[in-house]
Amino acid sequence: MLNDFMIRALFAGLGVVLAAAPLGCFVVWRRMAFFGAATAHAAVLGVALSLAMSISVFVGVLAISLLMAIMVTLLSNRGYAMDTLLGVMAHASLAFGLVAVSFVTDVRIDLMAYLFGDILAVGRSDLAIIWGGAGLVLLLTMWRWQALLLSTVSEDLAYAQGVNPQREALILTLSLAIVVAVAIKVVGVLLIAALLIIPAAAARLISRTPERMALGAAAIGAFSVAAGLWGSWHLDTPTGPTIVCAAAILFALLSVIARPLSARFAR
């Protein structure tokens, strides 16, 4: 059944949103939304370098994303605000990436495919990479869940109870880089951050515990992938953006429906 490109696209999308769901929750809780976007932008440089050096795009993107995350972490101790640093790094690596791509003249690159993804072109080996990466990220986040959550609530409480929040932050950064690397084919650089943030933000409206928010984000993400594929098939629209549109529409609907609920829970 994996021969059908729509089925492959569905499974690719599901793999990405399942891994992105718990991770996206942490991105929202820790106010790292821009961090996800910056990592994704850096991925363009990764694409260019891996094409120039004829290595796997997955490996190149992973390496550059990690490098950027580590540089941001190191530089943030020098007194710049995080958003400024991320702005510098994100746009610089995007620009350098685009310039670098232009040097790779002997390879015909469809840059649009990397900026917006091409989920319908996902092959069997892509599926293996996506599910391998997604599985790894899911295992990592489930393994570290309690420690990650405590570090997110308060770094000092974590230290007091023997959890090193810096190590947990590193695990989160690593997971983020993996998700960006595997998702680039599905939704592309520009929309990866959307798959991290929108399902998690939508799930917040209907969740009372962190676990339910992560599960809710996974369900909303999965529904968005299915709806986006269906929509792009019938409307003949680009698939990646249609998936993100579906997620955004769900977010809007939930915001309207859940308002009385959140008002009830507010103090």
Binding site: W29, R30, T152, V153, L157, A201, R204, S207, R208, R212
Partner: peptide
């Protein structure tokens, strides 16, 4: 003091 981000649902 402890600030819990309102986006984090935590009973």
């Amino acid at each position: 003091r402890l600030h819990i981000d309102p986006t984090l649902p935590l009973t």
